[in-house]
């Protein structure tokens, strides 16, 4: 098979399995997968109102910021957490069929992308409700999304492999992601960090840059060169490590799961 046909065939299996997973979770429910959208909308509205009051900010400013933050964060953190189990959950298939192992990671990544697609429709609604305009910077959304996706994918492969071998890793990652949630400006604005701490709290936090890449285009702001370069470097460096790791360990995954 030609390389492209091979990739296409495997992507088709992954997306089929990903859609199954999404459908599976909402089978026999009346509105089905739109529960994803509905529960996210409820969460954003509640948090928006509560934090709007606490922080004494206008909803016009805060709600778009919060909506983009929560939606992106839930995409990123759920992908990271779930890819830990991508090989473990596919044990039965891995031990019996010679299916490319990347399929199992791609399935989880795509599943979360589908969830994101359900959630992202909330963003224009929020902007409409608070009458916040969208700018031309929105064209940077797509490259931003792709770069985040590229980063989540390598993280998924690495985490999937490490977790298959060391079963404590999914728990550790879950704990780390909770910490990252609090130290990343998802709900609180990055401007609130004092100048001298911002450098290491935000500058060294890869998830901050990844979120900025996708959030700022919605808020009519250009992501900074720093956001772009660090995210790009993270992707390059990450895929390099992944490539070595896959070469060295992928043949052992069947024994680990």
């Amino acid at each position: 098979m030609k390389p492209w046909a091979y990739v296409k065939a495997n992507l088709s299996i992954s997306s089929m399995l990903a859609w199954q997973d999404v459908k599976q979770a909402y089978r026999r429910s009346a509105i089905g997968a739109f529960w994803i959208t509905a529960s996210m909308a409820v969460q954003i509205t509640t948090m928006g109102v509560v934090f709007g009051i606490i922080f004494r900010t206008s909803l016009y400013e805060y709600l778009p910021f919060l909506a983009t933050g929560i939606i992106l964060w839930s995409w990123i953190s759920t992908t990271v957490n779930e890819t830990c189990n991508s090989f473990i959950a596919a044990e039965a298939i891995i031990k019996q069929l010679n299916v490319n192992l990347a399929v199992h990671v791609a399935r989880v990544v795509l599943r979360n992308l589908i969830t994101l697609a359900h959630n992202i429709v909330i963003i224009p609604l929020v902007f409409l409700v608070v009458q916040h305009p969208l700018g031309w910077q929105l064209i940077l959304l797509l490259p931003g999304l792709l770069l985040v996706l590229a980063n989540l994918s390598w993280m998924g492969v690495v985490l999937g492999m490490v977790s298959a071998r060391f079963r404590d890793v999914p728990q550790i990652i879950a704990a780390i992601m909770t910490i990252v949630y609090f130290i990343t400006p998802v709900m609180w604005k990055p401007e609130l960090v004092p100048e001298n701490t911002a450098h290491w709290l935000l500058g060294l936090n890869p998830f901050y840059h990844l979120i900025q890449l996708v959030r700022l285009p919605f808020l009519s702001i250009m992501p900074t060169a720093e956001n772009w370069i660090l995210s790009l470097l993270l992707a390059l460096f990450g895929w390099l490590i992944t490539w070595f790791g896959v070469n060295k360990f992928s043949k052992q995954i069947a024994y680990w799961v």
Partner: peptide, 9 residues
């Protein structure tokens, strides 16, 4: 059989 099916290397 798993070796033959290329599951186990």
């Amino acid at each position: 059989l798993r070796v033959l099916s290329r599951v186990y290397h």
